[in-house]
Every structure is written in C-alpha cells, then in structure tokens.
Simulated assay, not measured.
Amino acid sequence: MEKIGLFYGSDTGCTDDITKDLVSIWGDEGLVVTEIDDASKEDFEQYKIIILGLSTWYDGDLQSDWESFFDEFQEIDFTNKVVAIYGLGDQIGYGEYFIDGVGILAKVVLENGGDIIGHWPIEGYRFTDSVALIEGKEDYFYGLAIDNDNESQLSDERLEKWIKQVKLELEPYLIPEYATV
C-alpha cells in the first residue's frame, strides 16, 4: 500500500494520545507519522494521501505548532492529494469554536486543489458553531470531531468508525493511475 503521511501537533498530549490510538487502530499499513513542528512544506510533497491532526485552542486558534507552520502550510499544493482531518476540541467550554482548527486546515486544502474525505456527522454533539462545518452541508464536519474533555468515553468508538470510513473512501484513490507520482 502507498505510504500515507500523518502530520499532527499536540500541546498537552491529548492529540498525541489520540494519534497513537489512531496508529494502533489503523494497523501496519504504511502510516508515516510526523509531528508538525518537525515538518516542512517539502515533506507534504512526497505523499498523495495525507492525514492531519490537531486541537483547537481558546477562541478558535490553531494548536501552537500548527499556528507556527500555518504560513508554510498555506503554500502547499494539494492538487491530486486526498486529505483526512481529525480534530480535538471542547464543545461545552468553547462551543462556538468547536474544532475550528479542522475547518481552518480544510479550507486551505480545498483552496489549494486537494480533496477531503472523512466528513463526520454533527449528530450527537452539543456545540453552537464551528468553522469546521462543511459549507452547504452543515450537518457534517470536514473531519472527525473528538471531545476528550466532555466525551472521552466516545473517543475510541468514534476513532474506530472514522478509520473504517476513511479506508473505504480511500479505495478509489488507490488505483494505479492515481497512486503514481
């Protein structure tokens, strides 16, 4: 299977823990994990399939390492790349900014020619607003929403379901013509 680049950032360790869980559930299928503070724009160029992970801080801010990398991230050409995003947030304490980081990254990916898979339904969440809502399809987030602050008991189940979904959605992108550089 083609190598998949997984780029994530974590300040408190929660996103790090979710990323380790994701890698464990995903299995040994070619994930190359890189913390975003160790990444460069060139690192993204070697992958056709990319997974991004982050948390949202305060009033809709990117996780600090993503914030530092964001100018460079905006320069990445995502043409012929498929991207899945997972994000952590607090839907109760910061309900008006719930997983905004997912939406911030998703919009750059789309503006720069990429495809996004792994859309996640908003059903079951209690938030008031989010930049991560898909425009024109507001009953879905651009990616997986994890709330370890208020619903940690659902994190593993949501992660497992999302990984199965992403793997199914990746199948059309794994045809030989697409996978070649």
Score class of each variant (00 low, 15 high):
59 D>G: 01
101 G>H: 04
92 I>Y: 13
109 V>I: 13
56 T>H: 04
80 N>M: 11
101 G>L: 11
36 I>K: 04
77 D>I: 00
100 D>Q: 02
79 T>G: 05
75 E>G: 01
62 L>C: 09
75 E>V: 03
51 I>F: 08
57 W>R: 07
100 D>P: 07
37 D>I: 15
54 L>Y: 06
95 G>F: 10
95 G>H: 13
74 Q>L: 03
96 E>Q: 13
57 W>C: 05
31 L>Y: 14
90 D>N: 12
50 I>R: 03
57 W>L: 03
48 K>M: 09
90 D>E: 10
36 I>V: 15
26 W>F: 14
76 I>N: 03
106 A>Y: 05
32 V>A: 07
57 W>K: 00
39 A>E: 14
109 V>N: 02
90 D>L: 14
92 I>H: 13
61 D>I: 02
57 W>E: 03
102 V>H: 00
45 E>W: 02
92 I>M: 14
100 D>K: 06
55 S>P: 15
110 L>K: 13
99 I>R: 00
62 L>Q: 08
48 K>R: 15
96 E>Y: 02
35 E>Q: 15
88 L>C: 12
41 K>A: 11
82 V>E: 05
79 T>E: 13
26 W>E: 00
80 N>Q: 14
25 I>N: 10
88 L>E: 11
58 Y>G: 03
46 Q>N: 13
69 F>L: 11
86 Y>E: 01
37 D>M: 15
46 Q>D: 14
59 D>C: 03
51 I>Y: 01
107 K>L: 06
60 G>M: 07
74 Q>R: 13
107 K>S: 00
105 L>A: 04
30 G>K: 11
69 F>P: 01
49 I>G: 07
34 T>Y: 09
38 D>S: 12
34 T>P: 01
